[in-house]
Design a protein around this nucleic acid. Sequence first.
DNA 1: AACAGTCCGTTTGTCGGACAGTTTCGAAAA
DNA 2: TTTTCGAAACTGTCCGACAAACGGACTGTT
Lengths: 262, 262
Amino acid sequence: MQEHEFSRIERAPAYRLVYDAIEREILSGKLRVGDPLPAELQLAEQFGVNRSTVREGIRLLEQSGLVERDGGKRPRISLPHYLDLASSASRALILHSVTFRELWEASMVLEPAIAESAARHIDVNGLAELNNNINAMEANVQRFEAGAEANTDEFVQLDRGFHEILAKFGGNRVLALAHEPVTSLFIPTGQIILQRLKTYRRVLDAHRHIYNCLKDKDAAKARTWMHRHMDDFRRAYELTELAWDAPLDAVSLGITQAAPHR
Amino acid sequence: MQEHEFSRIERAPAYRLVYDAIEREILSGKLRVGDPLPAELQLAEQFGVNRSTVREGIRLLEQSGLVERDGGKRPRISLPHYLDLASSASRALILHSVTFRELWEASMVLEPAIAESAARHIDVNGLAELNNNINAMEANVQRFEAGAEANTDEFVQLDRGFHEILAKFGGNRVLALAHEPVTSLFIPTGQIILQRLKTYRRVLDAHRHIYNCLKDKDAAKARTWMHRHMDDFRRAYELTELAWDAPLDAVSLGITQAAPHR
DNA sequence: AACAGTCCGTTTGTCGGACAGTTTCGAAAA
DNA sequence: TTTTCGAAACTGTCCGACAAACGGACTGTT
């Protein structure tokens, strides 16, 4: 019976308008990255709102990574970096209770592509970083093999570091961005697997092989090795009898039980 | 002369502590999704800080997607959704001036994988949505072919919609999350290409083929067709003589010139 | 019984002012 | 020219206040 559909009336609060206004200035380049943000009082005056309101708007900018605050100094305009976004992405994935299957399948797509790309684009600096990472890991493994208490924390961090260096020097920031939140979610799982199966040497060997492929700029082989490396991870996961389709948050918190057998 | 190195003392501002505290409550499940956030005054009292401080903390939560505000109602706990994250990710990519090459290479990895996964997981609802999308696009194309003024806006939105439905029903939320920011960045480029080359029919045909593969649950073929579809996009991009390695923001703003030939 | 109107306590959005602790920056001193 | 020092500017936090909007209860009308 209604003749006309009214579109929803929306009235954004002032602090959000402040956010939008400043965001626009940044995106359009009028406020340049690295510049300090204008003083709160000054902004309040320009926008014709109270300083408290401006401050709330700035908090939005802060969380979205467009403004960076260091101590009590003047906040500065900044580029949101991968890591900021990645951590919120990881959190979102956990809250949506993604499964290990989803995570692994995505990695199965991303990691080999990154390895392949890295073989084409990596430079001497990247290779040097990888080399350091591998050496550190070798030291770790030797300690473990000598019977030392296994410090899986450090090992897993090195493992993650290896893959991150690859992403960093892979010459593709889109892939790197997509990759980042996934790696951080693998950490708790990696810890569990390593503690139970002690596959340190096997991981290290895989990294070595990949490193050699990169050094030889052999993209196809790099992809293959990475593929194998990731598949190893899946097999290890299955061996630990963790649930393939269980939501991940349980694993993250270390409260996962063995998968119900059938 | 110093005997002990003190680690840098860091004093997070109170509003950030408020943010951290509430975030923890949400992640640990004490505050459940959908619940309204406690009143500001109440929080201020509990934390022992001023209401203004609490408000600033809530702004951080708001921007990170953990709190959703609808009109003047009580803000509610919510799950950060893909789209929120995706838009900040897109913005970050633009600000980092990623190139079309990076974008396309990433899509070349993600889209076929998503198509393959969708062939396995999509249900009747997903197929129905795809069908609607294709029909709408068919109507569009027929109008264009009848000589109507080309409304590339709607067409490009439909194109994007097709790929998003695939991601949504692909059964892998990690891939979907990674995919999202990329598609939105393709929009301006897609507009330019379509306007110049008028490849409407070709895009529609590709979508039809992919749809049929999904209906037949033929994952391998779905991947192949998507691969071809994306490669078409690259060829079209080259035909328009847009710069392959130019940062993307120029394209987004529509101020890109033809690539300098050599 | 369904619905419009009214009233009220609660909560958010915004404002103004205030003050302590830092940082910034230019002037004075070495 | 470089260093030192002090005032000005700025941020973080607090307090108090008020309008507008919401949620809900209660009432009267149809």
